[in-house]
Amino acid sequence: MSDVKALARAEAFARRALAFAAGQGQAAEILADYLAGQGGKVLSGYMPMRTEIDPLPAMAAHQGTVGVPVIMGKAMPLRFREWSPGTKMVEGAFKALIPEEGAWVEPEVLIVPLLSFDARGYRLGYGGGFYDRTLEGLRARGPVLAVGFAFAAQEVAEVPIDATDQRLDAVVTEKGVTVFA
């Protein structure tokens, strides 16, 4: 399965780069509108890297606590440190920006970055399993909403999956919102 996923990742990176070059359209506004319907629940976003679609405007508009992921170590679930516009950021693992300090929060809604997604609600990530472990743990404690954020061009016919892969509840793109049953 790892070879299949590696090939899928290479193809997905290329597809996402083309979509990024074309622009993000109204994606952040669509995401902000969708999140507004979540009633101010604790939200986790992410600091966009490379050609990832940018959730920062939607995170800044959120009427509630917002956190960003912090990688604690290999094969460990993510933790989330509180973030707001203007928070001092430092480089964390994999060069991802993280808040230098702040309270730890437990998200009820997660904006999940991805390389590709399919109509079943599965996503292809970077291969570290961080979001899958995190979602599994959070879902064991209660309801959590996982929202993929991507360019529409990142949709594929079928994402290769393992038994540990966690489904998304929805995907938001510049073309709209898809909710998975």
Rank of each mutant, 00 (worst) to 15 (best):
M1I: 10
A10P: 03
E11N: 14
E11C: 12
E11A: 15
A12T: 11
F13C: 10
A14G: 07
R15H: 08
R15C: 12
R15M: 15
R16S: 12
A17F: 07
A19N: 11
A21Y: 09
A21S: 15
A22N: 14
Q26A: 15
A27I: 07
A28T: 01
A28P: 02
A28F: 01
A28G: 00
I30G: 05
I30L: 14
A32Q: 07
D33L: 06
D33W: 02
L35I: 04
G39A: 11
G40M: 06
K41N: 06
V42R: 07
L43G: 05
G45I: 09
R50M: 08
R50N: 12
R50A: 14
R50S: 10
E52V: 04
E52K: 05
P55V: 11
A58Q: 05
A58Y: 02
M59T: 00
M59S: 00
M59E: 02
A60E: 07
A60C: 01
H62E: 05
Q63N: 14
G64I: 03
T65W: 04
T65E: 13
G67R: 03
G67Q: 03
V68M: 13
L78G: 06
L78H: 07
L78Q: 07
R79I: 13
F80P: 01
F80Y: 11
R81V: 12
G86A: 03
G86L: 08
T87G: 01
K88A: 13
K88Q: 14
A93P: 02
A93R: 13
F94C: 09
K95R: 15
A96H: 11
I98L: 05
P99D: 06
P99H: 09
E100F: 00
E100T: 00
E101F: 00
G102L: 08
A103T: 05
E106N: 12
E106S: 14
E108Y: 01
L110D: 04
L114M: 15
L115M: 11
S116N: 08
F117S: 03
A119S: 14
A119W: 10
R120D: 15
Y122S: 03
R123G: 03
L124M: 07
G125L: 09
G129H: 06
G129V: 04
R133F: 11
R133S: 13
T134I: 09
L135W: 08
G137N: 12
G137T: 09
R139N: 06
R141V: 04
G142N: 07
A146S: 08
V147L: 00
F149M: 10
A150R: 02
A152C: 11
A152Q: 14
A153F: 10
A153E: 15
Q154I: 09
Q154M: 08
Q154H: 10
E155L: 09
V156Y: 11
A157M: 11
A157D: 15
E158W: 06
V159W: 02
V159A: 05
D162R: 13
D162Y: 06
T164M: 13
D165W: 06
D165V: 03
R167F: 02
D169V: 03
D169C: 07
A170Y: 00
V171N: 00
V172R: 01
K175A: 14
G176P: 10
V177E: 01
T178V: 15
V179W: 08
V179S: 11
